[in-house]
Each structure stands twice: as C-alpha cells, then as structure tokens.
Design a binder for these strands. Structure first.
Lengths: 213, 213
DNA sequence: TCCTGATCGTTAAACTTTTCACAATTGGAA
DNA sequence: TTCCAATTGTGAAAAGTTTAACGATCAGGA
C-alpha cells in the first residue's frame, strides 16, 4: 500500500534516472540527488522529489544506495513483466518499429502486426507475422493482448483505436498524428513525431529569420 | 512582426489541428473552435487560445475560415522549408528511421547517416549513405546541416551531441534515453521511447494489480 | 565529544497551463 | 427590424509543475 501517486512528468524522468544508475552501479555505492541533478542539468529538489515518489530512503550526507534505487524504480516501472502487444499498420513506420529490437529491453513483446494490404499480409517482418486486419479481434482476445501500437494513417487511427479498446486493450501507443478518444480506463500515449518536428522546425526558423537571442 | 510567443504545448497541438483541417477542407468552408475541441476531446477555450496564437481571425457564429487557418498554421510550422538533417547511429532504430519516408512530409531531408561500425559504413539504407563517424564534422560543415538525429546508445549520446553542436547544428532530435546538455541556442527535442513505455507499463500494472477505478 | 558541511525533506513561493465565467459580436429566423 | 443562439475573446480562478528557502539529519574529522 505504499503506492504513491506519481505524476506523469516524474514517471517520464524515472527511466532516465534508471539508465544512469545502471551505468554507474559498478563503481558507485551511493549517489546524491544533487549529483544526479548536475548530471542532467535539472534542479536538485526536483530530482529529490522524483526519487521520493518511489523511494524515500535517502540519508543526509550519504545520498541514496544505488542498488536500492535501481530496484525501486524497476519495481515501479515494472519493465521486467512482459507486455503482450500488437501493432496495427505495417507501413513504413510500422515495419520500422517491428524491426526495432530495442523494445524487448522494456518488456515489450510484439506478438503480431495487422494490415489490410493483401501484398503485405501473410509475410513476416523481423520474424513477426503480418495478419489481415479482420483477424485483429480474434487474436487480441485469444492471446490476451494488453497493449496496442497504432501506426496507421491518422484518418483510420480512431477506428482502430475503438476496435482495440473493444477487445479489452487498456493501453495504446499512438504514432498517428491525431488525438484519440478512448473510454475511461484506457490510456493513450502519443508519440507524435509531427509534433516533435514542429517544435524543431519552429526553432530552426526562429534561428534563421529572427532574433538570435 | 506579428510573431506571438507560442508555448511549446500549443506548438505540439498545432500539427494535430493542421492534419484535421486538411482532412476536412474539401467539404467545410468554416470551422468553429468548439467543433475542433469536440473532435479531439479538448477544452474549447484551449483550442481558441491555440488558434489565437497563430490567427486571431475567428468570427462569432461562423468560426474560422478553414483555408486561412491552414495557411496560418503552415506558415508558423514552416513544414515546407526543407531541413537538412543527419542521423547518427545506424543501429536498429536508426535504420528504422532512415527507412521511414513519412518525414519528408514535414520537410525533413536526411542527407546521410553516421556510424562507427565498419560493417555498416559504406552501405546504403533506403538510398541514404552510411558514413564513418569520423566524417561527421566535415559533412555537417560542408552541407550546412541544421538538424541532427541521435540514435546512438545513451552512453554515447552526450558526446555526439557535443560534436553536433560544435558544427553549428542548432536543433537535435534525441532518441537516446538520456537528457542532453547543450549550449544556449541549441534546442533538444527528446523522443524518449523508454519514457513512453514507462507510462504505458505503469498503467498496465495499475490495471492488473490495483484499483480499476 | 563536538563541530562542520553535505545532503535530505518539506513548506511556501513562482511560474505555467488549463478551465471557468461572462461580456461582446454576429448571422439568421421570426 | 428584433430577437435568439452560436461563437469568439478575455480576464480571473484553478490546477499542476518547478524553483527557492530553510530547518533537520548525519558522516567524518578536529
């Protein structure tokens, strides 16, 4: 029952801390929030509050025990538990994500991909089967899929999202450049590459045209 | 000189609006902020304030002229202007991004990729050359590269970031699960897939173990 | 033993973003 | 023409996030 409410902002920083802690655990027993904050250019109180949300075992003058902190963050993030996943939309981006092995480190296991193009259906991408979209519901229900990755065009994203939610999927990773509406209890995480590019593009434009302040 | 300060949050929503406006422009002359807000499940005042940041030409009872709005958002985002880009780290994720053609729509032009693995250097990925990392500075300076995509492991990300910044690159798209420190004037946009997975994973865990509220 | 300084944890202040409340405007119908 | 309902735009409140201030704690040396 020591479940504290962790803000999304904090949750996003935890994997960053975790990665850093793993990288230093061989040669550091203890680490202070101040040191972490300096490593990443953050405010030290912010780091302390983030760590407090998962730990609360820091000691003055010493800091935190690195291995404890790692265990506590891993427990909160729960990367060890495998998340059964389907990917919908085996276009360029979809295939790219299917080919990316890095997700395994975070417990993501893509069982199958779906697409409605007959030319790609039936093929394997990185050893993972691409199935016709009509099979989506059957597979999701039978395999007890928990997470869905959406890489279809924005115009179809909401429909796919509805179908996934109807199969009992409660977490959706959306790469389409749109905002999805979901029933209560379903979480959508938007990985909107267009939004990121908008920020970068705006910055480049400001650099060129305007004040270089 | 009608440059208003646009918050990053607003800027992230603009591409979403833009995509939607493009999809309706054939059958709608006008659109109200209220309608947009309902489409995406946002607050109507928020949409109105977002649109105000780029336009300010809404009329009571009518709303906004779709084509005007599109032109204004496109002008702010400036997706039409090509951004010369390099990608550093041609591993799985790097190759996946190189293969993704969707970036062209946003004005992103990846000129070359860099890696220090001899087996991949000299090859082409999706028609783009993979060059040895030692050539990074030369190419960036000669081709006047503006944007750098970092897809190397977290442990090398800061070093690559420093090298890119030293070549005059002012915008960095970071896919490594770490926070980068950059000189003033350089913008880092983090696309931290680990952070996103952390959010999703936490949600799945909460669903299973705890209160389904 | 006692002091010093690093570090933690917490409360309050500053800042940012979102939501609420409401007056002002406008097109269209009665 | 007059009224109504839809819609905008804005100032203020609310909610959320980050930063600052400060007392409490503790390891290590004098």
């Amino acid at each position: 029952m020591d479940e504290k409410i962790i803000s999304a902002r904090t949750l996003r920083r935890l994997p960053v801390y975790l990665h850093y802690l793993n990288s230093i655990q061989d040669h550091c027993r203890n680490i202070s929030a101040t040191a972490i904050s300096e490593e990443f250019g953050l405010n030290d109180v912010q780091v302390r509050k983030d760590l407090n949300a998962v730990s609360g075992t820091g000691r003055p003058k010493t800091g935190y025990v690195v291995t404890e902190l790692i265990a506590q963050i891993e427990s909160v993030l729960d990367c060890r538990t495998e998340s059964k996943t389907v990917l919908v939309g085996a276009g360029n981006l979809g295939k790219a994500l299917l080919s990316y092995e890095g997700f395994r480190d975070f417990g993501l296991n893509i069982i199958a991909a779906f697409d409605n193009s007959p030319t790609i259906c039936g093929t394997l991408v990185n050893g993972k089967p691409v199935l016709p979209l009509t099979d989506l519901e059957t597979v999701c229900r039978e395999k007890h899929i928990q997470l869905g990755i959406i890489t279809v065009p924005a115009s179809q994203a909401q429909e796919i999202c509805d179908r996934l939610a109807a199969c009992g999927i409660t977490a959706i990773w959306n790469f389409a450049p749109t905002i999805l509406r979901v029933p209560a209890g379903v979480l959508v995480e938007n990985e909107n590459l267009a939004s990121s590019l908008a920020i970068l593009s705006k910055h480049l434009r400001a650099e060129k045209g305007g004040a270089p302040t």
